[in-house]
Design a protein around this nucleic acid. Structure first.
Lengths: 246, 246
DNA sequence: CCTGTTTATAGTCAGGGTGACTCTTAAGAA
DNA sequence: TTCTTAAGAGTCACCCTGACTATAAACAGG
């Protein structure tokens, strides 16, 4: 762009753009994938669910704005929100995506372990975790943003160690497997999943201490922590995709 | 964001944001990866190379703006530019990335077969293809954008059929292989590459007609066209990555 | 106390994909 | 004619994976 800026160009000659962030925040509750949504209290789309988000402030980057909104909307302590995985998805800029004004929105996907119910603190009329797939039609173009976010998360589970971001600091391989099953919506073979995860170096490392004292059914499982790796090679491909190959 | 817009909110209360697109346009020339750069004729960064780009107009989406700038800056006919592969990378929004004003830039990666030298038409003082890696320090944060674009293209070669976008409508497997070698900077085993590409359904399909009449050295090669598939399963992994695995 | 259920963990086996490698064919260049 | 270059066919062993079986260790219910 910069090469075309004429000398003395006045940015205010253009209709101003508002720049916002929209957040698709995922978590796992009861082994189901949930999304954080807010109910709109204003027109347009009053009463419909929408993704949380807000304006990028004049001295903020979009990343900073997304992190700030994440803390505000989830009602988590700033320290907790700072540790959630947050990554930029893409930018939505159709001229009429918001009927009120020209709004360019940088979308983010965020995810974390079983997060608490959002506290009502904030201007949002009503914020809630909804099981993914049950949210109906969202406001604005948020259906497309949410679908893109889900696609991205599902794809990144294949070739990165992102799944550990859905888990608490210490977790069992069963919990990790249920992350994959919830996001992909498929059942995975338990022994094969275990072999794959343990053979991928840097994905998980054993946590010292006794097997979990949990009251869950079945044999107690060993606890693991996230390893240092971010990439997963070779990838852990979804079962579905195999049809495309063969 | 929308949940937070107070009634009667005046967007002009904020310092306006300028929204631009920046393009990382790649092509192959002489089996080397080249990137399209423009030399800045204005301060700041006068005389340095920068990515082509421009403002998003008030009634345009960023995608439309990127497509328009692509045609303008490459000097290609609108029809040709319309067929180049173009995809959004991510958005760069650091508050001080442009010292003159608040500019949020949506970056795109574009690529096409051996493209012609950019014609001087346009306001850009000087636009040129430079071999990737020889461009030195670019203006603004364009070094980071270009590196991100290169990473993205390299990664997408692994698990998509993107490589055919670097090739003319009909191409040999040798040309396709040189796309991978140029982008990844590695040598690939010829027979294995051939086996892999031909066994992946939808990647390429044979073009009828005689083997190429080319004047190149060696045995004439069969011609292929891009298949209909976009995803490549299983992926064609870079040789380097294997160290991470094993 | 025994039995059935649930989950974790160990192990086996066959098939497919891949890397490494060899060989033949067909063109141009010297 | 001979050398060089690249296409294309084929081989072989290894590793990963999916499918499957078996055992261990907890809880629930009779």
């Amino acid at each position: 762009m910069h090469a075309q800026v004429p000398d003395g160009y006045d940015p205010r000659a253009f209709e101003p753009f508002a720049v916002t962030v929209d957040l698709a925040v995922f978590t796992l509750r009861d082994d189901r994938l949930h999304v954080l949504l807010v109910r709109r209290g204003e027109e347009p789309h009053r009463g419909r669910w929408a993704l949380p988000g807000g304006f990028v402030l004049p001295r903020e980057s979009a990343d900073t704005a997304a992190r700030r909104e994440l803390a505000e909307e989830t009602g988590l302590s700033a320290g907790t929100a700072a540790h959630l995985h947050l990554e930029q998805l893409r930018t939505y800029s159709e001229p009429d995506r918001d009927p009120r004004m020209r709004v360019v929105s940088v979308a983010y996907a965020a995810l974390g372990p079983d997060l608490p119910e959002p506290r009502g603190g904030g201007d949002a009329a009503d914020a809630r975790w909804l099981p993914y797939g049950t949210q109906g039609a969202l406001a604005f173009d948020h259906d497309a943003i949410l679908a893109d976010a889900h696609d991205r998360v599902g794809a990144k589970l294949e070739y990165t160690c992102l799944a550990t971001a859905f888990c608490p600091p210490e977790f069992t391989l069963g919990e990790l497997r249920r992350v994959y099953e919830a996001v992909w919506g498929v059942a995975l073979d338990r022994p094969n999943f275990r072999r794959k995860v343990l053979s991928a170096q840097g994905f998980v490392r054993p946590a010292q201490g006794p097997p979990r004292l949990t009251g869950g059914r079945g044999k107690p499982a060993a606890l693991y922590r996230a390893g240092g790796a971010t990439a997963l090679h070779p990838p852990l491909l979804r079962p579905e995709r195999r049809e495309t190959t063969t």
